[in-house]
């Protein structure tokens, strides 16, 4: 398959008079892990929400798997949405359902799988995200932050998506857990052959996962390419973004 998984052309987003994106072009090839980075308010999450189809761009076109997100055909739109999984920043687990029902929900919505098979699939997904069967009967309010992310990841994976979209996958996790979560995503990506798009602030996550990095700023994409290539782009924001991080990692320099 040579067609890009995500293809964004001439995207424009405005909130009132505030222009967030101006003529953005971006394409993501199959099997890649693309990280969207940028300062607060640069429209990373907005861009992600447009790719998911939660927001409509003011101009321009987004194609996912070569198909438009809003084709006008409800059935085709639904099929398309079943081909990607989304991990929301806060997990967005259904608080009234337990872990088992949360992960089973998208499978039940297919309406052709029997209960026992759904139960088996949920247990496999739980094992994939390294949770134990006894966790299946917990409610979301009884889970720790790291477990919420894992359950949300399991739910995002339940329809065997080819594309996985992650919004701040490691935000709110301590460094240990965040490293564990990153390695989990990396393992799963290897096993399942996923294409991944993630929004992140965390450079460790970025360095560990991303094959390519897109830097958003000044309403456009400032740079797009492999991490070492992007890091050497001569632009004040990019230099600042990566420099502050380098500073933090040097033990002899105290950051105030």
């Amino acid at each position: 398959m040579s067609a890009p998984v995500i293809d964004i052309r001439g995207l424009v987003t405005r909130f009132g008079t505030n222009v967030v994106h101006q003529d953005i072009d971006l394409s993501v090839e199959a099997g890649e892990v693309v990280a969207l980075v940028g300062g607060s308010g640069s429209g990373k999450t907005t861009l992600l929400r447009q790719v998911i189809g939660l927001l409509r761009p003011d101009a321009g076109q987004i194609r996912v798997f070569g198909q438009p997100l809003f084709s006008g055909d409800a059935l085709a739109d639904r099929r398309l949405r079943q081909r990607f999984g989304v991990l929301f920043q806060q997990g967005a687990l259904f608080s009234a359902l337990n872990v088992l029902e949360n992960i089973a929900f998208p499978l039940r919505e297919l309406r052709w799988l029997d209960r026992a098979t759904i139960r088996d699939l949920v247990m496999m997904k739980l094992a994939m995200v390294e949770l134990e069967p006894r966790h299946a009967w917990l409610m979301p309010s009884e889970l720790s932050g790291g477990m919420i992310k894992r359950v949300a990841l399991a739910r995002a994976l339940s329809l065997e998506p080819e594309l996985l979209l992650l919004d701040e996958p490691t935000a709110g996790l301590d460094p240990d857990r965040s490293a564990a979560f990153v390695s989990l995503i990396r393992t799963l990506r290897g096993q399942l052959g996923l294409t991944v798009v993630l929004v992140t602030h965390d450079i460790d996550t970025l360095a560990a996962l991303a094959t390519r990095v897109a830097v958003l700023g000044e309403r456009r994409i400032l740079a797009y390419g492999p991490l070492d290539h992007v890091m050497n782009v001569d632009h004040p924001f990019i230099q600042n973004f990566f420099a502050s991080d380098r500073l933090q990692r040097r033990p002899d320099v105290t950051v105030r």
């Binding site: 026992a116 139960r119 088996d120 247990m123 496999m124 094992a127 994939m128 069967p133 009967w137 096993q191």
Partner: peptide
């Protein structure tokens, strides 16, 4: 083979029975 091995966590059905 890897996929089938990941299914082996299911074990026998009774192991995963609801309370």
């Amino acid at each position: 083979l890897a996929m089938l091995e990941s299914a082996s966590v299911l074990g026998t059905r009774s192991r995963l029975a609801t309370p």
